[in-house]
Simulated scan of single mutants.
Amino acid sequence: MTAEATVLLSTPMTVRWRDLDAFNHVNNSKYLSYLEEARLRWMLSVPGQGLDDDVAPVVAAAHLNYRRPIEWPAEIVIELFVERLGNTSLSIGHRITAAGNRDTLYCDGYVVMVWIDRATGQAAALPESVREACRR
C-alpha cells in the first residue's frame, strides 16, 4: 500500500478451525473468502451499496500473493485500499496481517471490480456513490 492510497476499510476477523487444510494452516481458498467478507463490509458503507436496478459490481480479476501461512488460532486484520479508480472499474488493494503485529504480512494483492449494466452485461460507469466513497 502506498502512502497516498485511500484506505477503504480495516477490519478484524477471527480465523476459524474449519478454515484449516491438511497442512494445519488456512487453506488458500479461504483467503478469498476473507477478502470477499471485507469487501462486503465496505460495500455496506457505500450509499446504495454501489447497486441499483441498472448496475452492479462483479469481480473481474483477483491477484493474491501468499506471503506466509496463517495458523490457527489467529486474529487477523483485512485492510482494503484504493489502488486504481477507473471509469468502469475499481482496483481494490488488500493486505491480510496479524492483528497483534501488523508487520506480519500473510497476504497482499488486489481485486478488480467492474460495474456492469444488468440488462446488457456490458461495463457501465462507476456509480458516483462509489467514486465518493473512494475519495474519503
Rank of each mutant, 00 (worst) to 15 (best):
L85D: 01
V15E: 01
N87I: 07
Q122T: 06
T6G: 11
V7G: 05
E4N: 15
P12I: 04
A5H: 14
A60E: 00
A38S: 09
S91M: 09
P47Q: 04
W115V: 02
G121L: 02
A98D: 14
G109P: 11
L64W: 09
F23D: 00
N24L: 10
I76H: 01
A5L: 06
I96N: 00
T104D: 11
D103L: 07
I78L: 14
V7H: 04
I92C: 02
D54R: 15
P47S: 10
E71Q: 12
H94T: 04
A3L: 10
V82A: 06
A125C: 03
A38M: 08
D53P: 15
E36D: 13
D103R: 14
E132G: 13
R135Q: 10
E37L: 13
I76F: 02
W17A: 10
T2C: 12
T104Q: 13
G86V: 09
W72T: 00
E79T: 15
R84C: 08
M113K: 11
Y34N: 02
A123Y: 06
A62R: 02
V59D: 02
D53M: 13
I78M: 12
Y34C: 02
W115Y: 06
P73M: 01
M43Y: 13
N101H: 06
A38L: 08
T14K: 15
A22T: 07
C134L: 04
G50E: 02
D117S: 04
A74G: 10
G121F: 09
S91G: 11
R102E: 04
V82I: 06
P73L: 00
T97Q: 13
E71L: 10
L40Q: 12
L9N: 05
T97P: 12
A61S: 10
L51K: 15
S33F: 14
A98N: 15
T14N: 14
L20E: 04
I92L: 07
L80Q: 05
R131D: 00
H63M: 06
L20P: 11
M113A: 13
D108V: 03
N27I: 00
Y106M: 02
S91Q: 13
R118V: 04
E71C: 12
S129E: 05
R68M: 08
R68D: 03
R84D: 08
A60R: 14
F81E: 04
F81I: 01
A3K: 15
A22Q: 09
E37V: 13
G50Y: 09
W42S: 07
N101A: 12
E83A: 11
L35I: 11
V55A: 05
K30R: 14
R18S: 13
